[in-house]
Design a protein around this nucleic acid. Structure first.
Lengths: 189, 189
DNA sequence: ATTCAAAACTAACAGGTGTTAGTTTTTTTT
DNA sequence: AAAAAAAACTAACACCTGTTAGTTTTGAAT
């Protein structure tokens, strides 16, 4: 059973460096040194620096897209959907905090895949917005400005990657539950 | 009356470029081209690229520190203090969204001033934490995990710079009010 | 033991980086 | 109009950047 091949390891280490200094400030020589090899050797495994960023961001973006798709397919009410979105973010950020950092702060350095990423992100936000609006329409959610609610929720959820690695004494279920109370009880009736 | 000297203009333009691509990805030649001059000419006005980042981040960090200090000096209750913190963030993010971007995403590229910045940030967070804890202690705020409340509020407030420039149809007072309802009504009793 | 592929290496490239030195042009002050 | 100050310029530096080409080492399969 092949567990983690060299390429996957490189991408994982790169994501960790990207989180600390950002994509542009991490050189291929930095990455190579952390891997214990020379920069040129990286190219036996990866195509380019850019392809590493693509791997990191696209895989996570697609994970969110698929998660949102599952949530929409379920016939639960709006608050249930929001709770599942919260869990989705907690799960992904817990599993891949480094990758989430790249997605949040380095997406603008995507080249070929930039438009693809932006399309996924816009779709995600639009679905999120519709869930909130539906909740307002059927009195599950207070009649506040939809954009402010969306922004407030997404800001918190998108920042989880910064915070989860520092608080290891809280497990995923506890965190999701606590966030649900704080975020949802604030906007429901 | 001297309005804006050349150095201030350079720092302002730099902050705008930093917001779009990040500190590391913006070159002095990029900055010079945007200013309509040659890169070497920048050095008649500024000391170094690093000094531009310092100017941007330190001035904002000190603005927050001073704002927090004023809020603490007032003898209002915890919810009042939180509302004033929200207004502080809305005001600063509205006035200087580009600078907020640098503070949020490029602080790790500070060299000499890194520790000073981190000290200010830690103090700010600690004061914020104490306000929340005091609110819990005297029953103004629900007895939820303080760290999760702090993280949730700060995440939203720190992300304002991303969002304010896109929604120009909402004025500062309306935004602060709307945020207060959404963020505070969720955590008070 | 030999073969073969995976993964490392050295050396180098073409162009980009922040910054300095010295000079010329432009603007302001007298 | 002359002098002084501010702000631009050209040219160059020492080093760093991602990446390629060609070669050697390593480790597993035959």
């Amino acid at each position: 059973m092949k567990t983690e091949n060299r390429k996957t390891e490189i991408v994982r280490v790169a994501a960790h460096l990207f989180k600390e200094k950002g994509y542009s400030a991490v050189t291929m020589r930095d990455l190579a040194k952390t891997m214990g090899i020379k920069a040129a050797s990286l190219y036996n495994h990866i195509e380019s620096k850019q392809s590493i960023l693509q791997d990191i961001i696209v895989s996570i973006a697609e994970e969110f897209t698929q998660g949102m798709s599952s949530i929409l397919a379920e016939s639960s009410n709006s608050i249930d959907k929001l709770n599942k979105i919260i869990s989705l973010h907690v799960t992904i950020a817990s599993k891949n905090a480094d990758g989430m950092a790249a997605l949040n702060t380095d997406w603008m350095h995507l080249e070929d895949k930039l438009n693809y990423y932006l399309d996924l992100r816009n779709s995600y936000e639009e679905n999120f917005r519709k869930i909130i609006q539906a909740g307002i329409d059927n009195n599950e959610i207070k009649n506040e400005n939809v954009e402010v609610i969306l922004f407030s929720l997404l800001s918190t959820l998108r920042s989880l990657y910064l915070w989860i690695p520092k608080k290891e004494n809280l497990n995923e279920a506890q965190l999701a539950s606590s966030l649900s109370h704080i975020l949802i009880k604030g906007i429901n009736t």
